[in-house]
Design a protein around this nucleic acid. Sequence first.
DNA 1: CTGTTAGCGCTTTCAA
DNA 2: TTGAAAGCGCTAACAG
Lengths: 347, 347
Amino acid sequence: MNEDHGSRRSGPRTIAEIAEATGFSRTTVRFVVGGQAERHRIKAETRARIEAYVAAHGLVVDHTARSLRTRRSEAIGLVVPDLANAFFARLTAELEERCRATGRVLLTASSHEDPEREAQAVAGLVGRGVDGLVVAPCRPPSAFKGIRRGGRTALVMVDRAYARSPWPTVVSDNEAAAHRIAARLIELAGGDVDLLCACPDLPSIADRLAGFRAAARGAGVPAIADRIHVAAGDEPAAAAAPMAAILARGRSPRALMCTSLLMLEGALSELVARFGRLPEDLVVGTFDHHPLLDALPVRILSVRQDEPGIAERAFATLVAEMAGAPREAVCHVVPGRLVERGTAVTG
Amino acid sequence: MNEDHGSRRSGPRTIAEIAEATGFSRTTVRFVVGGQAERHRIKAETRARIEAYVAAHGLVVDHTARSLRTRRSEAIGLVVPDLANAFFARLTAELEERCRATGRVLLTASSHEDPEREAQAVAGLVGRGVDGLVVAPCRPPSAFKGIRRGGRTALVMVDRAYARSPWPTVVSDNEAAAHRIAARLIELAGGDVDLLCACPDLPSIADRLAGFRAAARGAGVPAIADRIHVAAGDEPAAAAAPMAAILARGRSPRALMCTSLLMLEGALSELVARFGRLPEDLVVGTFDHHPLLDALPVRILSVRQDEPGIAERAFATLVAEMAGAPREAVCHVVPGRLVERGTAVTG
DNA sequence: CTGTTAGCGCTTTCAA
DNA sequence: TTGAAAGCGCTAACAG
């Protein structure tokens, strides 16, 4: 029956168990394990006895119970389209690091670009009592209105700046970066440049398109609309159709700009399939850097988004709001870094 | 003073609030929102009134309070060396998906290969009351002995099978896969093959080394010990030193096997730095696939680990243990998939 | 069919 | 310097 008398248990103890075992009250125990022994002038011997017991048996304070009482969980939630995506994976890692450093934990969830899943994820995390939420939203954020439990959950958006979002937002400088890449490609290829993009309605992608268009306009490139090719989805296979359209011109593109690494992967596959290799004089521009790009036998420009910077801004904003700062619907823009490398193979 | 009378609040309600507002008891409300209306034969009108109220005002059940009472959190924890690493990112995504599908949430933490951080992460997650824990351990798992709160936290290890671990473990078939890659490289390069590796003491890497050695032995390759080059850490920059040793022979290696993508990246950088391009007849074998590998101008073999398979096995094992199944210290081996692609550039 | 009650382990306030 | 008591929102067992 009662195989568990409290003293035979292995594993860490609760505060009440320690109190009973040492003969002091819960309050006293809590003061010493909470590091408030000095402040409450606990007798040295009392303190020593309690600390010895803890050292011997261990202690894990139950955050569940603590949260219930204090109405805060020291946890923050993250909702992204896809955790396996390199950008979001790095963002997750950076946020997790900041959580750890401040004694918090990170709860993660993926929306797979599905607003319903996103809503479920948010509700689930809020129900778990997260103090704050970082979301890379897959739709205009109207759905977030009523979700905040008692209005107490802080919220910041990342990666996608929907117009007139009421939430603070942190994004990369997509338009400026796209402008820089495009201008350079146009310069290198004498204006003969194509853009391969997916999900043009996402704010981040729309900004990249705008940057591309502005650069083309600035350089006087004609018929730029015919040079913008939209894939059905942001995955390598979806790049096949638009690439077929490009290759139907009967020659390799001179310069190719991609709005994501996945598009680039798809494009390269198609080129390799068509020509047996990557055309030597091709120039490529892309968003999101990957070290393997350096080994490709083409001239390549990429923009590395500043995940640590984005994470830092988002986290700081979130913490400020959790600490009671008024929410401001500002959009923080974090610059990326342009990486240009001459082609290695022809060097 | 009392600006909040309970009915003026916006946002979802607690069960007690709904009970008071509708005039029924908490039990009744709980039965209908918990989908147990049928089972307890709640009057249809009662049910309709409650459901209407919920539809109008929303409801978020407080998992914090529920957990405190039920002693389970419907949450599982994941501790990996680095969330940004592509393999672990995919594993995380797969686990998160399985959590979502079963109404759980995933709490993530990184150890950065530091046993102390790992212990902190585990303690933090256990303190949060996770029902189960998936860990890619960075040291022999002796430290996990006492951590399980009340002995109730299920635990399964992934990616690294330490000898005589008392916990169920799920890993890739590193040795067999390495054997296959090595055998093929030896065949293609007439036995002229080098291995670049980091962290040879990790069980996964040790297994890959063993597979390499066995293949070399089987093919009668001489002086294989001289062909194994160890980097100081699993990061591209650390590959510089061992690559320098290889290149000091005055010629490009014929076949190069890497125990991780990061090693491969470092190796390719060095080759490009040395020769201005990748040597045309180089053959490369590596662990962990990446789509960009397909665009490299070298013949390449890679083993794609089966993250969904690993996640599925780990999750199933964890759920079984949480459901009361006895813990078995078995090691599940999930086969990877060998991807071989002829060189695109010389094709 | 519906309501009452007693805690889960913690923090907080008040008392001694 | 220490202790007692109330209660966070929920579930579970038992009464009607």
